[in-house]
């Protein structure tokens, strides 16, 4: 029987919703693909028609959340922020949306966003990275980022995200300080860009 595009979309949506619930309630590691399939009322094999792995499913949740976060970010801009503040707002909007998934963001960092990520998951990771950096390029348009600065930014971002995922300080207040300092470093590096290092864009 041929499954309609609409039915596929509905199934996919159901799997994502179930994953969202189970990952938060049971934890990422404790949730199996069988649990996901059962809760979504599909066969286990069917699940893999939609998502290559549990990690890919987690990465999808993260990607969806970050897409919403980009809209939040635009809405939170007051028009008076300097670059450091804009970048801070951009990242913190993402953390706000990712808050329910904090326990498994680490897994996504290790798979989708890692340079050593598996195929399939890494393509989603590439999309995530490209979408995020597109905003950064837009915000730093005047500085025209070269490859070194982009790499510096992305390294700092992943570092802060990893810190946030494991941050046990009250209200993750240490993450705020780490993010603030990291962005200060990045913005300072931009002001140094024209002088001391060769451009590689």
């Amino acid at each position: 029987m041929k499954v309609s595009r609409e039915a596929k979309r509905a199934t996919r949506k159901r799997i994502v919703k179930v994953a969202q619930k189970l990952f938060v309630e049971r934890g990422f590691d404790a949730t199996t693909t069988r649990d996901l399939a059962t809760s979504a009322d599909i066969a286990k094999g069917t699940l893999f028609n939609y998502f290559e792995s549990k990690e890919a499913l987690a990465a999808t949740l993260v990607a969806d959340a970050l897409e919403l976060a980009r809209e939040d970010f635009r809405g939170r801009l007051r028009g008076e922020e300097d670059l450091q503040q804009q970048l801070f707002l951009h990242i913190s909007a993402g953390f706000r949306r990712l808050e329910p998934y904090r326990t498994f963001v680490g897994a996504v960092l290790e798979t989708a966003l890692s340079p050593f990520a598996k195929n399939g998951v890494s393509s989603l990771g590439d999309e995530l990275r490209i979408d995020h950096l597109e905003v950064v390029r837009e915000l730093t348009a005047e500085q025209s980022l070269d490859v070194v600065r982009l790499h510096l930014y992305w390294s700092l971002y992943l570092g802060v995200a990893a810190f946030w995922a494991a941050d046990e300080s009250p209200n993750q207040e240490d993450t705020l300080a780490v993010l603030d300092e990291s962005l200060r470093v990045f913005v300072l590096s931009l002001s140094d860009q024209g002088g001391n290092s060769p451009s590689r864009s």
Binding site: Q84, Q85, Q86, F88, E173, L176, D180
Partner: peptide
């Protein structure tokens, strides 16, 4: 000083809402 974006995030964590939501007005 703390810039407003940092401060607003901190206040949200502490008071449960952005400064603009928790107070009638809040100078940045």
């Amino acid at each position: 000083p703390m810039h407003y974006a940092l401060l607003a995030e901190h206040v949200r964590h502490e008071l449960g809402g952005d400064p603009d939501d928790v107070f009638q007005s809040f100078e940045t």
